[in-house]
Amino acid sequence: MDILEIFLTASFWTAAIRIASPLIFATMGELICERAGVLNLGIEGIMVAGAFTGWFGAYMGMGLWGGVALAMATGMLFGLVHSTLTVPLGLSQHVVGLGVTLLATSLTYFCYRVALPEVTSPPKIEAFQVWEVPVLSEIPVLGPALFAQTPLTYLAFATVAVVAYGLYRTPLGLAIRAAGENPAAVAAQGLSVTGLRMGAVIVGSGLMAVGGAFLTMSAFDSFFFEMVNGRGWICIALVVFGAWRPGKALLGAILFAAFDAFQIRLQQTPLGAQVPYQIFLMLPYFLSILALVAMSRRAEVPAALMVPFNRGDR
């Protein structure tokens, strides 16, 4: 197969969008947190927790959407822990974030062992099925990619729209952005910086967990250790790549996913037989770094990102 022909196949783009979906959720979650001024390094662990609870909820008979809701609630709970420590208490966001990641990851593995002590291979669930949008899904190449996906993928795209509208068109969104730019300005207008930042972190963490749940409930139908595999860290880079804007971050997620889908297919070409496959695995990360260098030059970081705010400080 010719290498460039890969880009013309519908299956390539379908895979790219599927791979992008969990990244989109988690990137939007991280973006909300950072726009409010809080770096949430708990993202990796929160995705692991979401992957487990979503799948486990469905396995225990809560239904697929019940599982998604459970994942979201789990994420919000970790968001509450993170934001309590970083916002009113003003602790280091790096340390708390990494702590939350370690805590969430270990706690998840522990719960898995406790809940399923006997199993050797993890049980499967009936995962989300592809739902083809009538008519639209018949457009060549892009049709199947965008309109023959699982409901969670549609939800991911809807999330981007809601986040973009919310941040730029509503008073609440303006207040959240201002909290990330200059919390003193927010406080001077009689708004609660603590409330805005905690709310943003809690909601954002909920989205991260849904991103994790996508892996076990839509991309796959079971839960493994190491499943999230650094996707959370990628999302943090995607937020920077997207210059803290939802639309650009969405493009970044799709671009990264396309690299990933591309390298999988590249491994099956004659070229793949000669080059060690690790090179291909490395490719999306390598290209992401290049793209990040090119894109983030002029990015405007939220001015108060990682700056704790204490009212009444002199």
Binding site: A175, R177, A178, N182, V186, Q189, G190, A303
Partner: peptide
Amino acid sequence: TLADNLSVLDNIVLGAER
């Protein structure tokens, strides 16, 4: 108490609406 990266209008309406 202004946010430098936001527009003048954004800064003025911040907190004034519900």
